[in-house]
Design a protein around this nucleic acid. Structure first.
Lengths: 198, 198, 198, 198
DNA sequence: ACTGGCGGGACACCCCGTTCCT
DNA sequence: AGGAACGGGGTGTCCCGCCAGT
């Protein structure tokens, strides 16, 4: 039945519904109908906010890109506090949670979606590229703070940490890796670059 | 791309066609139609050699799994020779070439395919899990050979190396990373574990 | 935004808008949306004046039925004056003008609308049936006036004249037939029934 | 279940199914689905034979146009035999049977279909225009045969006869007109043009 | 009283995996 | 082996009727 009342943040409701479908039923179940059904809105509403279903998917991926930026900002704020391994490990857990992982998989499968996000930039996979950039920034910060050696290569370390974090999360089908596994592998990567027991 | 498999048999022709489609148009374009069209055979032929389209995809992934085993065997044969970084870097280049990368993406999107490959084992992503296993074996070999420290964790290092290698390859859409980038990041990961300048 | 001011004759505005759409874009383009858009009023307004969109269409057809009655009355008033052919020809031009023709087409496609107009009567196409009835009445009048032979069949002649008039108008898509064509065909039909050169 | 067997005259089966739907459920029920369901074929088959659903409708109208040509040929063959009124009346009954009438209504409602049928010709309603042409040809034949007066206007008579025939058939919603009604009206139209009691 | 957003249903068109007759 | 057909599903689009607001 029609409500007669304008929806509050229809765009957000649709994206949230898309996430729920993605998590519950997997990327193959992401259809325009399943999204509007899940959001409990009319079919046509999706096309009010998104010209295309692909544009919706792009926006969905974009939400994780933005989430990664938030995580990166948080991470940058922890420069000098806690331990480097702990900070990195925590960031990986947040980036590659079930939702993030699902969206990375979506981005990897639908490579063409990336071209909608970045118009003229260099090609890159949305979420992963941003995660690497944020991680590099943090490691550079730690380098300045003296907790990472000056001859270390933050960009390469960032690639290693993000790539490994992704693999760890994606490699386990039944669930996400436990914290100790992430800690161990992060430490293995960073140990040579650390200035002391951080 | 010569696979070494005779192209006379329909099965091989179909798999080769699948690879070409995957490389040219991406995993989303892999359909039974696009494969049979690319192979220039009738649609029904695919079902003569594979009970299912999913079985075809599984077989496609399996080809790379086998390739990874070959690479792993080669890598194991290089224990003690060359440099560790060079050996690992070379293996990564071979595993994550354009074809391998495309198949990993396919395996990541279609996680359910893994259940066709491994019957009762623990869940894992086919190609990546095998690559990690092979890499761990090699690193353990180097550890025994004394080129990697005894207190290093070969399994964690293998995860880091493979995960990073995958990210490096997948992150660049326009092409594969150059060798120096791989060398750098492998060195960054392994430097702490190396016994000397290998 | 609500204006707070009551529309003057919203019903009439909607019907007029419906006619314009019908003339400009044809019967297939007559939708509740196109009507309210054309009338520049809210979609809901139509529902205030008409319980149904079909009721709106019925009312639209009814306007022409009423127009036909006016034409028939005028025609009846011309019994004995002018020429029979001229009178009939003039009536046809008025009945099957662009608007009338469009409404006839609508009535022909939506035959079910007739059941809304006539409750218990015998089935008939609204506008055409009325036009035939009016024409029969006129011809009967002329028969009494002596300008049409006593052995002529006014009902059959009326059917012939109206049917032919409709065909002439409907057959030309680019525009209405010119007066001489109507005159010619009316004369061809009536010549045998005429008592002398009327 | 797929049959694997090529359909015999799939095009014809679809058109026949379209006619059945049109007759049974009316023009509004003519959808691509109802046609393929009625034909008991797959949905996609319609698009194998017709690029568009409108093209299907056009072809449907075309079938009646062709039927009219057959009737016209038959009619022309009857020049000089039987009676003119009987010949014309019979032709009208055949042209405006239930199926023909439904297709005329379709053509009147979807005027744009005509533009698919005739590319550069003068605008005209497909079936009716052809019927008039055929009728004119027949009446001209009778004129040459001496059964219609030399000063009669075959084209105008044809228009009158076809237009009236259409009205008679369309005017009765419950069923087609009986033969005597058609005879009467045809005689009323033609009586002045006949050379003697034909 | 009028507005306009929304629900729900249907439609055309398209594509996919699959079957099976020729 | 070839390829026509099948059934299911998905997208984008339209349309009608409803109704909470203003």
């Amino acid at each position: 039945m029609p409500t007669g009342v304008a929806l509050q943040d229809g765009r957000g409701r649709l994206l949230a519904a898309g996430e729920r479908v993605l998590l519950r039923d997997g990327p193959a179940a992401l259809t325009s109908r399943s999204v509007t059904d899940e959001a409990d809105v009319a079919k046509g509403l999706l096309h009010r906010y998104f010209s295309d279903f692909d544009e919706f998917l792009t926006a969905l991926v974009q939400t994780q890109t933005e989430a990664v930026e938030v995580i990166s900002t948080d991470l940058l704020g922890r420069v000098g506090s806690g331990t480097v391994v702990g900070n990195v490990s925590m960031a990986l857990s947040r980036i590659f949670d079930a939702r993030g992982l699902a969206l990375v998989r979506l981005a990897l499968f639908r490579l063409d979606l990336a071209t909608r996000l970045r118009s003229e930039d260099e090609p890159a996979i949305p979420i992963l590229a941003n995660a690497v950039a944020g991680m590099e920034e943090y490691l550079t910060g730690e380098q300045r703070a003296g907790r990472i050696k000056v001859d270390a290569a933050p960009f390469r370390l960032a690639q290693a940490v993000i790539g490994t974090g992704h693999l760890l999360s994606a490699g386990e089908l039944g669930g996400l890796p436990d914290k100790s596994a992430i800690d161990e592998v992060v430490e293995a990567i960073l140990v040579a670059a650390l200035n002391g027991p951080y």
